[in-house]
Amino acid sequence: MTRRASSPRQRTWALRRLPVYLGLLLATLFSFWPILSMFFEGAGIDLGPLWSGKGFSFVSGVPYYSGGFFPSWANFRDALLWGNFPRLVLNSTTIAVLSIVIALAAGIPAGYALARSKLKGMGAVGFLLLALRTVSPFAVVLPLYLTYIRIGLFDTYLGMSLAYLVIDVPVVVWMLSGFFREVPRDIYEAAETSGASEAQIFWRIAVPSVAVGIAATLIFAFVLVWNEFLIASLLTGAATKTVSLGVWSGVGEAFGGLQSADWDAINAAGTLAFVPAFALILLVRQYLAKGFSLAAAD
């Protein structure tokens, strides 16, 4: 109350808000700077000399900046037009779509059953999914690799899609069971009393009412597969190399075999690969927490 009466109200208010703005600024820098620095690297912009004040000088009275400030779209253009970037995008997309179609085919009915059925053992399925999340990729990928070599699935779209089910199936089932749980019980009951069969309730009522949830789940799973690195580095060869691996394999040049190209070009391609993933995350942000919240409610 006293605050409201104080005369330089505006100023006190601004002062009180100062920590908030400072916090926002820090949080923004923390979240955004690493991404921005990747973009800068790709665009050939180096701000270091600017900070140090060393890159700036006067050459016979004319301001001259000797720092590495040479912004250029060349790396981005080259990645899109000349490199194997489009091929990597095609590989990742094909593998992700195939994998997610299989995951949805298994996950939609299972998520529905987990949400609606009171049968014995449904809780166990939920825990099983969490337990499977603890499986180290090496416990799965090494056997898959040995098997793939034998039956000719190594370095194929199908083989990679199957391997990625390890990642996307648990997420798909969790999120979908959450969305199915959100459908009001009355709707199911009304359908039952009006004589709809179980199959009809599933196809005509349950699935359409979580259509948005299915889309959100699909998109999130896509981003997970798009960004995956370890499984791709163990199970892909030249034919099915994915975006995340293809772009960043230069990081592993020290480990032999992975040859680094131009670091600026790598960062440009990394930025290009990040942009669609970010757009997709923005698209589904409000459904992400919701899917998990509803799935975790017990």
């Binding site: 960004n227 690195f229 923005l282």
Partner: peptide, 13 residues
């Protein structure tokens, strides 16, 4: 949206 950026970045980034 800004705070969500890292979530879209590949872990290798």
């Amino acid at each position: 949206a800004v705070f969500l950026m890292p979530l879209a970045a590949a872990p290798i980034i």
